[in-house]
Simulated scan of single mutants.
Amino acid sequence: MADWEIRKLHILRTLRERGTVTATAEALRMTPSAVSQQLTNLSRQLGVDLLRAEGRRVRLTDAALLVLRHADAVFERLERAEAELAAYTRGEAGEVRVGAFPTAVPALVVPAVTALRAAHPGVTVRVREAEAREAYELLGGGDVDLALSLAAQAPSAVDPRFTRVPLLADPLDAALPRGHPLAAAEDLRLADLAAEPWIFGDGGPWADITRAACEAAGFRPHRGHAATGWTAILAMVEAGMGVALVPRMAAADRDGVAMRELRADRPVRHVVAAVRRGAGDAPAVRRVLAALRTAAAALA
């Protein structure tokens, strides 16, 4: 029987996810030569070629993809084994590391942690703020146990590494200067703001969400100012410099800003939690997921 080594399979799996030997080495805190040596040894042990050189890059062979299909199942079983051991040794106690995008921390994570402290004081939550896409990278790399992110930034729902849990459809409201002619208009539509200067960032998930929502409403937004922080965006709106889409989770009361619900063409962003496939069986992780669902339901 071939010598199947979990460590080497993990390196091969990471290469599939990261695409290059250099990126794989960075993710696993190894040198590129060590990555190449481990994969060469695995290829020799299994008796098949796993990599094919294409210029300065490498491509996984069909044999490597076959190996990885089985490796995904192996890693899922190992995650389940760790979850069951955690249940046996710690019961209700345990530590869960949560990676969450910025607006989710005060809106969802803090209420969930507060409730857990009262109901299950043995469950400790360690929070790490991260951008939406980074949260999945942290989860895949084993740096967090649960990722709170946006569905638009998530890997495919059929990704064998993760189990996704829908939490919330967060409405996007229009932020207008209080004295704007449309601030008190009845049945405001997103298309009514097509000619306005818009405020959003140069890139990232929120710029993509703003553009997608406006294009779905039939226009391309003209960006008058670039900003990514909600404090800066709302300050500019209050000063009459433009309008913005603001997720309800991030909205803050400002005297000079009118927050308007868009009923007719109501855009939303979908907030999801994710765990590594099989790891959701750990009791502490289940407790955190349940608390996040409760916080999301209250917010909705």
Rank of each mutant, 00 (worst) to 15 (best):
M1Y: 00
I6A: 13
K8A: 12
L12K: 02
L12M: 05
R13I: 00
T14F: 02
E17T: 06
G19F: 10
T20C: 02
T20R: 01
L28M: 13
L28I: 08
R29P: 04
R29E: 04
M30V: 07
P32K: 01
Q37P: 02
Q37F: 04
L39Q: 11
N41D: 14
R44A: 13
V48E: 14
D49I: 02
A53E: 09
G55C: 01
L65E: 15
L65N: 15
L65Y: 10
L65K: 15
V67Q: 12
H70M: 12
A71R: 14
D72A: 15
A73C: 06
R77I: 05
A81V: 11
E82L: 11
L85M: 12
L85S: 10
Y88M: 11
T89H: 10
R90L: 13
G91W: 10
G94R: 08
A100I: 03
F101L: 09
F101C: 06
V105P: 10
P106W: 10
L108E: 10
L108P: 08
V109R: 04
V110H: 13
A112P: 13
L116P: 10
L116K: 09
A118E: 13
R128L: 10
E131D: 12
A132R: 07
R133Y: 03
L138Y: 13
G142T: 05
G142P: 07
V144T: 05
D145R: 01
L146K: 01
L150N: 08
L150E: 12
A152C: 05
Q153H: 00
A154L: 04
S156V: 00
V158H: 05
V158N: 01
V158I: 05
D159Q: 03
F162H: 14
T163M: 06
L168N: 12
L172C: 12
D173P: 00
A175K: 02
R178L: 08
R178W: 03
P181R: 00
A183R: 02
A184T: 13
A185G: 06
D187I: 04
L188F: 05
A191N: 04
D192K: 05
L193D: 02
A194W: 02
E196Y: 03
G201Q: 00
G204I: 03
G204Y: 00
T210Y: 08
T210M: 07
T210R: 09
A213R: 14
R220H: 14
R220D: 07
R223Q: 15
A226R: 15
A227N: 12
A227S: 15
W230A: 07
A235Y: 00
A235L: 06
E238A: 15
G240D: 06
G240N: 03
G240H: 08
G240Q: 01
V243G: 00
V246Y: 11
M249H: 10
A250P: 11
A251W: 07
A252D: 14
A252V: 15
A252P: 04
R260E: 03
R260V: 15
R263G: 09
A264K: 11
D265L: 11
P267I: 11
V268N: 11
R269L: 15
R269P: 06
V271E: 14
V271D: 13
V275D: 07
R276W: 03
R277C: 11
D281N: 08
A284F: 00
L292E: 04
A297L: 09
A300P: 00
